[in-house]
Lab assay of single mutants.
Amino acid sequence: NQASVVANQLIPINTALTLVMMRSEVVTPVGIPAKDIPRLVSMQVNRAVPLGTTLMPDMVKGYA
């Protein structure tokens, strides 16, 4: 199973992502692939993302 990107903490709306905010985990449904973590750094979330939430492409500005 492919690992997805999961929030390692509460990420407030419009926050630029950093490595410490994200972890990889095998979850259902599948979200953004963990291999894309380096690409996500500095991108902003367009909503508040609670701890443990799988990041989906529509949550990150400029990803999709």
Rank of each mutant, 00 (worst) to 15 (best):
M22I: 13
V30H: 15
Q44Y: 11
I13Q: 15
N14T: 05
V20P: 14
A7E: 00
T15P: 00
V30S: 15
R23S: 06
L40G: 01
V60S: 01
S42E: 12
S42V: 03
A3H: 12
L10N: 12
P29W: 04
N14E: 08
D58K: 08
V27F: 02
V6G: 00
G31N: 01
G62E: 15
L19W: 13
L40Y: 03
G31V: 02
G62K: 07
M43E: 09
A3W: 15
A3I: 08
A3P: 14
N14V: 03
A64Q: 15
T28C: 04
L51E: 14
S24E: 12
P57Y: 12
V6M: 10
V60N: 02
V20A: 13
A64M: 07
T54F: 02
G31T: 01
L10S: 14
M21N: 12
S24D: 08
R23P: 02
M22A: 00
K61M: 09
K35W: 15
V45H: 01
M43F: 09
D58M: 14
Y63G: 04
T18N: 06
V27N: 03
V49R: 03
A7C: 04
M56K: 09
L55S: 01
S42P: 02
A48F: 15
S24V: 12
E25D: 08
M43K: 07
G31L: 02
V5T: 13
V45M: 06
V6Q: 03
V20F: 11
I32R: 01
N46E: 11
L55Q: 01
P33D: 15
V20I: 12
A16C: 05
P50D: 08
L10P: 13
N1D: 14
V5L: 03
V5H: 00
R39H: 09
P50H: 12
G62L: 09
A7T: 14
N8V: 11
N8F: 05
V20L: 15
L10Q: 11
R23V: 08
N14R: 07
D58R: 05
N1C: 04
T28M: 13
I11T: 02
P38R: 05
V49C: 04
A7W: 02
T54A: 06
A7I: 07
R23F: 04
R23Y: 06
I32D: 01
M21R: 03
M43R: 08
I13T: 11
L55V: 07
P29S: 05
N14M: 09
P38T: 12
N14L: 11
L19E: 09
R39E: 09
D36S: 09
A3L: 14
R47D: 12
A64W: 06
N1F: 11
Y63D: 04
S4A: 03
A34H: 12
S42I: 03
M56A: 09
V41A: 04
T28L: 13
L10F: 13
V26S: 12
M43T: 05
T53M: 09
T15Y: 09
D36W: 05
A64S: 11
K61D: 07
A48V: 13
T18R: 10
N8R: 12
N46D: 11
K35C: 04
V26M: 15
P12M: 11
R47W: 15
V5I: 10
R39S: 14
V49K: 00
E25L: 06
N1H: 12
A48I: 15
L17W: 01
V49I: 15
I13K: 08
G31H: 01
V41N: 05
Q9P: 01
T28F: 15
G31A: 03
P38H: 13
M43I: 04
K61R: 13
V5D: 00
P33M: 07
R39I: 10
N14K: 09
A64I: 08
V26G: 05
E25Q: 15
T18P: 00
S24Q: 13
M56C: 03
M22F: 10
Q44P: 09
G31E: 00
N46W: 09
I13C: 03
G62C: 04
P38F: 10
L55K: 01
R39K: 14
P38C: 04
A3Q: 12
N14H: 12
G52V: 02
S24A: 13
P50S: 12
N8D: 11
D36L: 07
V26F: 08
L55D: 00
T53E: 10
L51Y: 13
N8Q: 11
V5W: 01
A34M: 09
P33Q: 05
V60L: 08
M21A: 05
V60K: 01
V27P: 02
N8Y: 03
N46A: 08
N1W: 15
I37K: 05
V41E: 08
L17E: 00
Q2Y: 12
L55F: 08
M59I: 06
A34F: 07
T18E: 09
I32M: 03
M56V: 11
N1P: 15
N46I: 13
V5Y: 01
T54D: 01
V27R: 10
D36H: 14
D36P: 00
R47C: 04
L19P: 14
R47Y: 08
R39F: 06
P29H: 07
M22E: 02
L17R: 00
E25T: 12
T18C: 04
G62Y: 07
V45F: 01
L40I: 11
K61I: 10
T15S: 10
R39Y: 10
P57R: 06
V20E: 14
L19H: 07
L40V: 07
R47G: 06
N8P: 02
D58V: 10
T15V: 06
P29D: 08
P12H: 12
V60P: 01
A16F: 15
A3T: 06
V49N: 02
L19Y: 08
T54C: 03
T18A: 11
V49Y: 02
K61C: 04
A48E: 14
K61P: 10
S42Y: 12
S4R: 01
N8M: 09
V49E: 01
L40H: 00
T54G: 03
M56P: 01
L17Y: 00
I13S: 14
M59N: 08
P29Q: 06
V60R: 00
V20W: 08
T53W: 09
M56R: 10
T15I: 09
L51M: 10
V41R: 04
R39M: 13
Q44L: 08
A16L: 15
A3G: 06
L17P: 02
D36A: 06
N8C: 04
I37L: 09
T15E: 05
V60H: 01
L10W: 14
P33G: 05
N46S: 14
K61A: 13
E25R: 06
R23T: 06
K35M: 13
P50A: 10
T54Y: 02
S24M: 13
P29G: 04
T28A: 14
G62S: 11
V60M: 06
V6E: 02
L17G: 00
L19I: 07
N1R: 07
S42H: 10
T54I: 10
G31Y: 02
G52T: 03
R47S: 11
M22L: 15
M59V: 07
P12W: 05
D58H: 12
S4C: 03
L55N: 00
L19Q: 09
M56L: 13
R23E: 05
N8I: 07
R23K: 12
R23W: 03
V20D: 15
P29R: 05
V6I: 06
V49F: 02
N8K: 15
K35G: 08
L51I: 14
P57L: 05
P57I: 06
M43Q: 07
P38V: 12
T53P: 00
L51K: 11
D58Y: 12
V26R: 09
T28I: 08
V30Y: 14
A34E: 12
D58P: 07
D36R: 04
V27D: 02
M43H: 10
L40W: 02
L51C: 04
Q2W: 08
N8T: 13
L51P: 10
K35N: 14
V41D: 03
V41C: 03
T18M: 06
M21F: 05
L19N: 14
G31C: 03
Q9N: 08
L40N: 00
D58T: 09
Y63P: 04
M21G: 03
G52I: 02
V49H: 02
T28V: 10
V27A: 06
V27H: 04
A16H: 07
S4P: 01
V20R: 09
T18Y: 03
M21C: 03
V5K: 01
R47Q: 08
V30L: 12
G62P: 05
A16W: 12
V20K: 15
M21I: 03
V45N: 03
K35T: 12
N46P: 03
V49L: 09
R39V: 07
S4M: 02
D58Q: 10
V45K: 00
T54N: 02
I11H: 01
V30A: 11
I32F: 03
A16T: 06
L17N: 00
R23D: 05
M21P: 01
E25G: 09
G62H: 08
K35R: 09
P33K: 04
P57C: 04
I32S: 01
N8G: 14
T53H: 15
A34G: 13
K61L: 11
P33L: 13
M22H: 01
L19K: 12
Q44D: 05
